[in-house]
Nucleic acid binder design. Structure first.
Lengths: 215, 215
DNA sequence: TTTCATATACTGGAAAACCAGTAGAAAAAG
DNA sequence: CTTTTTCTACTGGTTTTCCAGTATATGAAA
């Protein structure tokens, strides 16, 4: 699709005025802009959206806002404006945060250290329906940390099976019935799982297992 | 970066011969190919990688393999070949599956219904360090299902706080001490959380909360 | 000001999990 | 064939969670 397009309406949800100023200048210089709307809080933005003003093409969304976190806001925006492209725009370079934002409806993420041209390129990619990341985020996503990959202890086949059933909310008695073993056996497997994951209870076990993509 | 590049080595991990045949033809027609290696199981692929043959530029990875699931394989490949680009190549169009593959080191995903040109474009994007999806996957990622967005029950501020602490593995007594309230209060919050999420225990609560990106 | 939602706290009890230990059979690996 | 790993199962006990109910104070919304 051509990059010539109708003038854009872009919303900036960001609580640092100097950042807003800089973004405005970059956007105006390099994109066909109809309007740029600035919001310092999530609440302000949501209220404005609910007033039903003209559509927003792109939202540049900080993760850290004074009144709510950007991930919750992202999900809420996506409900209200399903066709709007949301790009994270933040200092946070934590991989799981980026993935969380994507999981909540964003289609890209730009670190605040990105150059003007990177920012514009990401917005254009987003408008083309691409998933759009600034360069450093691409590197972060393509190379999961060594710690993240190595931290996974080896689980036996039976342990994995029991882990999944625990995550489904089944009690040890339930699991014992399903697998036709003694509840004592299930309890031993649970204990072994908790030792391998270095946790003390089922809640932490499931949290850790989910983080390690074992479920 | 130019798309003229050194001849590529591409691995196809796929158990349907007709799919492998079709992929081969597409790749040979449109890319500078040094070698195409075919594997029908994850184990075959891992063994070959461990023999230390020449590097692989791109892996096209089915999710459903006879001997293991593609997500586990993806993670294992990424440990062994950190600089190789892995693209999912599957019939599964479930959004969470795509996100899981990305979380495990893949840099893209192609549905099997993609055209030849889409496949080539994705591979070229991946080689450029882009996150690369075929068109339908882009649509799926950009529009989380209404069900997925709406299913999240509203949690109060205190509930969210207690949910996080439960996920950290803290007992109700621990949480009560930290928040300077009665353990009975924490127990009531837990019960309310479980009712809202329609679960019966902490393991299922944490699993569900993670799926809903509340943690 | 009133109503509703949230947060707090308790009773009495049962169920489940966690703890630390021990131990043997079967399967897998060397 | 031997050794190691996995899976199985139990004892005795404590801690924690889950259950269903009730109730009041405070804050927020109408």
């Amino acid at each position: 699709m051509s990059h010539d397009r109708m003038p854009l309406t872009i919303a900036i949800v960001e609580d640092h005025p100097v950042v807003v100023e800089g973004l405005q200048r970059i956007l105006i210089n390099d994109l066909p802009i109809r309007a740029i709307r600035e919001y310092y809080t999530g609440k302000d933005f949501i209220e404005d959206v609910k007033r039903g003003r003209q559509p927003i093409d792109v939202v540049l969304l900080d993760i850290t806002l004074p009144d709510m976190n950007g991930i919750d806001l992202c999900r809420e925006i996506k409900v209200l404006l399903p066709d709007t492209y949301i790009l994270g725009f933040s200092n946070h370079n934590d991989r799981s945060l980026v993935m969380q934002l994507l999981a909540n409806g964003a289609c890209g993420y730009i670190l605040k250290n990105a150059s003007a041209s990177e920012i514009i390129t990401c917005i254009l990619h987003a408008l083309d329906g691409q998933v759009a990341f600034s360069e450093e985020i691409k590197r972060i996503i393509n190379k999961p940390s060594a710690q993240q990959l190595k931290a996974i202890p080896p689980l036996t086949k039976r342990e994995k099976q029991i882990l999944k059933m625990i995550a489904e909310g089944k009690t040890s008695v339930d699991i014992a019935k399903d697998l036709m073993v003694s509840p004592f056996t299930v309890e031993t497997h649970r204990r072994n799982l908790m030792q391998k994951m270095d946790v003390k209870n089922a809640a932490a076990l499931i949290r850790t297992a989910t983080e390690l993509q074992l479920l």
